[in-house]
Amino acid sequence: MIAAVVALLVGLALGALAALEFERRRRGRALSRRAPVHRIAFPFTGEGLSEPALVAALRLARAEGATLMPVYLALVPLRLSVEVPLPVEAAQALPLLEAIEQRALRAHVPVDSRIERGRTVRHAMREMMEHEHFERMVVAAGANGLGDGFSAEDVAWLVEHAPGELIALRPAQPTTP
């Protein structure tokens, strides 16, 4: 009698464990199914992180089930080796990337952040294009000195060189009364 009860208890315990394990794996599979297969690059510099462009990039990433790849472009002065560690730039970049990640997580958008360095914005973007794969790029255009975005020359360069689609967001012109 006791043996039967023990066997029953052991059976129940094993069954419960198996059920838990099945549920854990099911969740894991569901998470991995949600994992997007493509990425949207969002390059920016320490001088200009455009809120409207970030919102647009997040909206797009969420709509498409894509991963947002915010890329901080760190500019290395000519007097330094391009390979030198950049603690000052990193101290600026990491909180920005962290903030973007927080917002993206609240919007249920997966994030894969990067820091790319270069002598100029274009050099850093060229490095980014060489190292990373992405299907789309969202950039802020700081037209006529408005907004925190790339210069018209940089955007024109991107139009010519960027792989995949390029979405350049121009800030709205101020309305005159």
Binding site: P87, A90, I115
Partner: peptide, 15 residues
Amino acid sequence: REQLEALRRLASILG
């Protein structure tokens, strides 16, 4: 491989 390279570049920037 891509993640490893990204990590390598990040490590280099951070020293």
